[in-house]
């Protein structure tokens, strides 16, 4: 399969020195190990459902704008209607989700990733 030149550390002329790269066998071993499995699960079980959720929420908003004009035009106070509030709600949830993910990543993902990286780069 991989008969052609493999990608990243290719011609070795890049001036910023990277750490020595572990072998493919080491990568497979780590990938199948429990520690990495835990990291993958912690990442995916957070990022995937959250992605589905914000896309669904966004689509709901688009569909409401399209097909529920009457509801969206309901005035809440002054000239502020439901459409505007839901639109600003999209801004708000975007900021909120970015913050939630970053907090999750800093607390749960970074330490695990760091541990695996330090070990692999030390071994190599």
């Amino acid at each position: 399969m991989a008969t052609e030149a493999p990608p990243p550390p290719r011609n070795g002329t890049e001036t910023d020195h990277g750490p020595a790269s572990p072998t493919t066998e080491q990568f497979i071993e780590v990938q199948e190990g429990a520690e990495f499995g835990e990291l993958r699960r912690t990442y995916r079980s957070f990022a995937f459902p959250l992605t589905l959720a914000f896309i669904a929420w966004y689509l709901l908003y688009v569909l409401l704008s399209n097909y529920a004009g009457g509801f969206m035009g309901t005035k809440v106070f002054g000239n502020i209607n439901v459409a505007l509030i839901l639109g600003l709600g999209q801004f708000l949830t975007t900021f909120l989700i970015a913050w939630l993910y970053s907090r999750h990543a800093a607390r749960r993902l970074d330490p695990r990733a760091e541990a695996i990286r330090t070990r692999m780069e030390g071994d190599a």
Binding site: M1, A2, P8, P9, E14, D16, H17, G18, P19, S21, P22, T24, E25, F27, I28, V30, Q31, E32, F36, L39, R40, Y43, L109, A113, E114, I116, R117, M120, E121
Partner: peptide
């Protein structure tokens, strides 16, 4: 018919989540 390259995927997945060898 091609079998996915298991070793390459291991490299990509481990690198992408941990940053091993990233520079």
């Amino acid at each position: 018919k091609e079998e996915p390259d298991k070793g390459k995927y291991a490299e990509l997945e481990v690198k992408s989540l941990t940053g091993v060898g990233a520079h």
